[in-house]
Lab assay of single mutants.
Amino acid sequence: RSRTAFTAQQLEALEKTFQKTHYPDVVMRERLAMCTNLPEARVQVWFKNRRAKFRK
């Protein structure tokens, strides 16, 4: 699988949600996936990586 390049709009939506909660539930992730045209699995991995970045 190749690396996913996120658009500015996708990142904005993801970051906005991350500010609200670092652990979105499956419903919220699926809604984000639909809004951003990304698979739910990519949204889940983005949050996992973003939490790791946040802890540093």
Rank of each mutant, 00 (worst) to 15 (best):
N49Q: 14
H22S: 05
L14R: 01
V26Q: 14
T21H: 05
D25P: 01
N37I: 02
L38E: 02
A8F: 05
R31Q: 14
Q44L: 11
V27C: 07
L11E: 15
L14M: 02
E40T: 10
E40L: 07
M34G: 09
T36D: 04
F6I: 08
R51T: 06
E30H: 05
E12D: 13
R31G: 04
T4F: 14
D25N: 07
R3S: 14
A8R: 05
Y23W: 07
A5C: 13
T17H: 04
A8M: 09
F54A: 13
T21Y: 02
T4R: 11
E30F: 05
V27E: 12
T36R: 02
E15D: 03
V45C: 11
K53M: 11
N37A: 07
M28L: 11
K48T: 08
T4M: 10
S2L: 11
A13T: 12
R1Y: 10
N37E: 09
T21R: 02
V43P: 02
L32V: 07
R42C: 15
V27P: 10
T17Q: 06
R31H: 12
N37P: 01
R51S: 01
A13M: 12
R1H: 14
M28S: 09
A33N: 01
L11H: 12
M34K: 14
F6A: 09
L38M: 09
K20Y: 08
K16F: 09
V43L: 05
A52I: 15
M28N: 07
A13Y: 07
W46V: 01
M28T: 12
F54R: 03
V43A: 07
A41E: 11
T7P: 05
A5P: 15
C35H: 14
M28V: 11
Q44H: 13
H22C: 04
N49Y: 09
A13G: 03
Q10R: 02
V27R: 07
Q9K: 11
R50N: 08
L14D: 01
R31F: 04
R3Q: 15
K16I: 07
F54L: 13
T17K: 06
T17G: 11
N37R: 08
F47S: 05
E12F: 04
C35W: 12
Q19N: 09
L14Y: 01
N49R: 09
V45W: 12
W46T: 00
T7M: 06
A5D: 15
T7E: 08
Q19S: 11
F18E: 05
K48A: 12
P39Y: 05
L14Q: 06
